[in-house]
Simulated scan of single mutants.
Amino acid sequence: MTSTFELKVNGRAHRVQADENDLLLYVLRNDLDCKGVRFGCGAGHCGACTVWMDGRAVQSCDMPLWGTAGRELTTVEQLASDPVGTVVLDAFVSLQAAQCGYCINGILMSVTALLRRTTTPTEAELQETMHRHLCRCGAHARILKAIEAAAARLPAEGQP
């Protein structure tokens, strides 16, 4: 059954007509023109569709629209407006951390969410973050170097 949903995406309010069980991925891409959110596996395993929900990285391909009520959603299109996102983007570009680029939008969202929480992630935190992403090009070594470089450029926790 189609209903009207009010979504806050990238700081702007939107109204969409959709079924409550429609997946966030399709609403973002098809209704709100957020093409940086990519369809990968459709089962929440590859990470290409990662967005932030209240600042936390989530896969949008298995998130029903009803689960987004009252939540702040952010897509990769907004990443350059985030102070940590800017540092992460710069590190990924300068170290050429992407090859084909299909997976990288989701990885950027997850990495930035992690570095917003801690500028000194543990090996376990890095593994947990990257575990949700599949890069078929084999760029993981460059991606890990870019994460390390971005973390080094950010102020330490507790510092202004």
Rank of each mutant, 00 (worst) to 15 (best):
C61S: 04
H131D: 15
A139N: 05
K8Q: 14
G106D: 09
Q96G: 15
A151K: 13
A141D: 03
G36Y: 04
T2P: 11
M63F: 04
H131E: 14
Y26E: 10
N10I: 10
L65C: 02
L144K: 11
E148I: 13
E148P: 03
G40H: 08
V27D: 04
T50R: 09
V51M: 02
C137K: 13
R117P: 02
G36S: 11
M63T: 08
A97N: 11
S94T: 09
V37P: 07
E77P: 07
N21W: 04
A150R: 04
C34K: 12
N105P: 01
A18T: 06
Q96K: 11
P160N: 13
T2I: 08
E125M: 06
D22G: 01
V37D: 06
R12I: 01
F39C: 13
G70Y: 12
V58D: 02
A80W: 05
K8I: 04
N105L: 02
H140T: 09
A124G: 12
P160E: 03
V87P: 10
T122S: 14
G158I: 12
K35H: 14
R29N: 01
E125P: 00
G70F: 00
A113Y: 06
K145I: 09
M1H: 15
A48I: 14
G11S: 09
D54Q: 14
Q59N: 09
A43V: 15
L95F: 13
S94Y: 03
A57N: 01
G55H: 08
E77F: 03
T129N: 06
L28I: 00
E20N: 07
F92E: 05
V37K: 12
D31Y: 09
C49Q: 07
A152E: 08
D62I: 13
S110V: 03
R153V: 12
E125I: 08
C100N: 07
L95R: 06
T122W: 10
A80D: 09
I104R: 04
I147H: 00
E123T: 08
S60L: 03
G11P: 09
A91Q: 12
L25T: 03
W52N: 04
H14A: 12
A97Q: 10
S94W: 10
C49H: 06
G42F: 04
L95S: 04
L23T: 02
N10P: 01
D90K: 15
I104A: 04
R136F: 00
V84W: 01
Q159S: 02
V84S: 00
P155V: 07
T120P: 06
R38V: 13
E148G: 05
P83N: 09
L79E: 00
D54G: 07
R136D: 00
R136P: 01
F39V: 11
L126K: 06
I147M: 04
E148C: 03
M1A: 12
H45P: 03
C34M: 11
T68M: 13
R116I: 09
H14T: 05
